[in-house]
Amino acid sequence: MHFISEELDDYAVAHSEKEPPLLKELTRETYQKVVQPRMLSGHYQGRILSMISKLVNPKVILEIGTYTGYSALCLAEGLQHDGILHTIDVNEELVDFQKKYFDASEYSENIKQHLGPALDIIPSLEEQFDLVFIDADKPNYPAYFDLIVDRIKPGGILLSDNVLWSGKVIEELNPKDVSTRALLEYNKLLAEDSRLETVLLTIRDGLTISRKKIPS
């Protein structure tokens, strides 16, 4: 989803950091072999995720929704040398695909794959998180938020993808559209939670940056 003209979007991409060769290869294979390749973060958003991670310089990252591993590799670029990125997905068919690219990267020792429902896996993780990226099934966004908000370190960052949902968040709600309903609830949670500072960016399909406030 693009909210600016294709020409302006192309200009922004052309004047941003280049896509690393391994991620170009991952993109190409995703489009060749995987259903719904548009779910990929892609060059421009991937560079944004990389930049945010580098600014945060996290020790521990949690990613909810791995898909083919593109966003995980972007986020890993900002990890501390001995940091860890936990990435969770329910699609068993993509595990080997993800691992192929994780192993080919310089972050193979830093990325830990988890297979199964995130609502079950997150409670089993012991760490607190410096950076969290949510890009999974939309109906569970509010539930994911409830699980992770108290485990984000003060000053830590929560990134939430697809929060504009192709513009459906400002359209009349279809009573059967559970994804849009959940995103409306989720966006309200982020905007109103006193523990967070939140900015919703009109990047691609909507990307929210929320910062956990540091107690005074």
Score class of each variant (00 low, 15 high):
residue 186 Y to K: 13
residue 210 S to Y: 03
residue 190 L to Y: 06
residue 109 E to R: 15
residue 94 L to H: 13
residue 40 L to E: 11
residue 126 E to M: 09
residue 125 L to Y: 08
residue 31 Y to H: 14
residue 41 S to P: 04
residue 174 N to W: 07
residue 195 R to V: 03
residue 82 D to Y: 02
residue 129 F to Y: 15
residue 118 A to C: 09
residue 85 L to E: 08
residue 155 G to W: 06
residue 61 I to F: 13
residue 81 H to V: 11
residue 79 L to A: 08
residue 44 Y to V: 00
residue 9 D to Q: 07
residue 133 F to E: 02
residue 21 P to E: 10
residue 29 E to M: 07
residue 29 E to A: 05
residue 169 V to C: 07
residue 32 Q to G: 00
residue 177 D to W: 07
residue 101 Y to L: 08
residue 159 L to C: 04
residue 22 L to E: 09
residue 31 Y to T: 01
residue 38 R to S: 14
residue 42 G to I: 03
residue 123 P to Y: 09
residue 139 P to S: 05
residue 65 G to H: 07
residue 47 R to T: 11
residue 21 P to D: 15
residue 40 L to Q: 15
residue 40 L to T: 15
residue 16 S to I: 05
residue 214 I to Q: 01
residue 135 D to W: 09
residue 206 G to N: 07
residue 156 G to I: 03
residue 216 S to V: 14
residue 33 K to M: 12
residue 175 P to V: 11
residue 163 V to Y: 05
residue 47 R to W: 09
residue 23 L to W: 03
residue 44 Y to Q: 11
residue 113 Q to I: 07
residue 1 M to R: 10
residue 195 R to S: 10
residue 51 M to L: 12
residue 185 E to V: 14
residue 149 V to L: 09
residue 103 D to Q: 12
residue 216 S to E: 15
residue 4 I to E: 10
residue 52 I to M: 03
residue 159 L to I: 10
residue 74 C to W: 09
residue 138 K to N: 02
residue 78 G to L: 04
residue 131 L to Y: 07
residue 12 A to F: 09
residue 214 I to G: 06
residue 148 I to P: 08
residue 50 S to W: 00
